[in-house]
Amino acid sequence: MILEGLARLGRSGLGTLERLGRAHLLLAGMVLGIGAVLRRPGLLIAQLFNIGVLSMLIIGVSGLFVGMVLGLQGYYVLAQFGAAESLGVMVAASLVRELGPVVTALLVAGRAGSALTAEIGLMKATEQLSGLEMMAVDPVRRILTPRFFGGVLAMPLLAAMFSAVGVLGGYFVGVGLLGVDSGSFWSQMQSKVDFHEDIVNGVIKSVVFGVVVTWIALFQGHDSVPTSEGVSRATTRSVVHAALAVLGLDFVLTALMFGE
């Protein structure tokens, strides 16, 4: 009875380790496959279209509304302290440091990551991946690697768009609707937001999130049980794991980057 419980614990532990090992082998395979992507940039462009261009609308609209809400809420709080002129700093710093990279990563995980998992999972279920292998084409290099680099490249650009549109949204609400002075909105922002400390760190964050979100999505698809149920479960897991990983990593990265 006790032995049975121990054995079950051990089995699940070994299973987790095995999955982790497979995930890292897949990551190594994709990173080493960068040469294949450079030789055939057409594959990468197609994935940049799928992950980047098709996500632009949701990123732009979300960024605008997040920025506008920040402008509104920030104004109400700051106005109580007579510091409404600092609205620009608040909007820009929170977007560039946190909300831009994190919300973009969550949206991309839902919009593009789930699609990647379903696509790869279905390719596996319909034995297209095995078919490629039988034709001596490495499916990791041909199918997964371009998707991986597409995601890694698209994420920081999408996050930058999110933050930029958000700042404009905050400007629209703060200066346009609530009457904060336009000059101090920008000048306070420029004097308090640091290029290296805030912008570059935000970009580094979103590159890390790009790696993590696409890696999880591709691994879940590649490792899915090749049935309709298996693919649907893998898609759910892909979004949940990616969201948890992004939020957890964000805390670690923030602690490393912005601690004094």
Binding site: G52, M56, V96, M161, A164, V193, F195, I199
Partner: peptide
């Protein structure tokens, strides 16, 4: 479209660097 996407992304980064930061 991908070219446009990259261009818009870099314009956004440039905007953040020049207009938002110091």
């Amino acid at each position: 479209l991908v070219g446009l996407f990259m261009a818009v992304g870099f314009v956004a980064l440039f905007f953040l660097a020049m207009q938002v930061s110091n």
